[in-house]
Design a binder for these strands. Structure first.
Lengths: 111, 111
DNA sequence: CTTCAGGTACGACTTGAATCGTACCTGAAG
DNA sequence: CTTCAGGTACGATTCAAGTCGTACCTGAAG
């Protein structure tokens, strides 16, 4: 039942350019904002974000977030979990998550 | 001698998505990092950044930064000045500039 | 076993963004 | 006036990124 943790960059290897590019997309920013809103940083199902895009595209976005080092992905085979890497982000880019949390939730105007 | 101040968005109208997209580019991030490093926020010539790109492309990047609300552009006709909108940025996105200032200056690896 | 929902792989399409070439404008200095 | 450097306008090119269609895999539930 323990899923495999898909690999991402180390905490120190987080790159500001990569992170900004990851957060430039409205859908990815929405996911990260929702994750940041949960102060418990509990694992969350990847299908629980009801993004208005296809499954394949969602897979793509989650991969980008993971490769940017912003989230961990846990693979259970036929489903997947995601978890915010709050500590690593806060250590490398203090205050970044606060910017996201301060955003109005359902802001669909950003594009 | 007083140049015309080219228009950008109001302080409250700054959009996080637009800002992240603007800062996703290495050259624009370099410009903003250099501006943020000067605590006096003095006006600076647009040609003082020696970016490794053509004049036309620089014009493009400065426009993106202005339209994102990150800088003011002052048009003198045959030359141009640029100034960081530190107060507006800090008010709308507190801590954002600190993230840029914390970056290693000559980091050309981000792309 | 079969079915089914969640997810991935691969490829194709489309749009946006970065870049530059050519031509032109602007103000200052000869 | 002419020259010249800094900057813009417009168009073309190139490349990255977001998107989806088709096909396939995986584990859980009948």
């Amino acid at each position: 039942m323990t899923g495999k943790n898909l690999v991402g960059p180390e905490a120190d290897a987080l790159d500001l350019g990569v992170v900004f590019r990851a957060l430039a997309d409205e859908h990815r920013r929405s996911v990260l904002t929702q994750l940041a809103a949960d102060r418990n940083d509990s694992e969350r199902g990847c299908n629980s974000f009801d993004l208005p895009i296809s499954k394949q595209t969602q897979t793509h976005h989650f991969r980008v977030l993971r490769e940017a080092g912003l989230v961990d992905e846990i693979d259970y085979g036929n489903r997947k979990g995601i978890r915010l890497r709050r500590a690593d982000i806060e250590k490398r880019f203090p205050g970044l998550l606060a910017l996201l949390e301060a955003e109005p939730p359902g802001d669909t105007a950003s594009r």
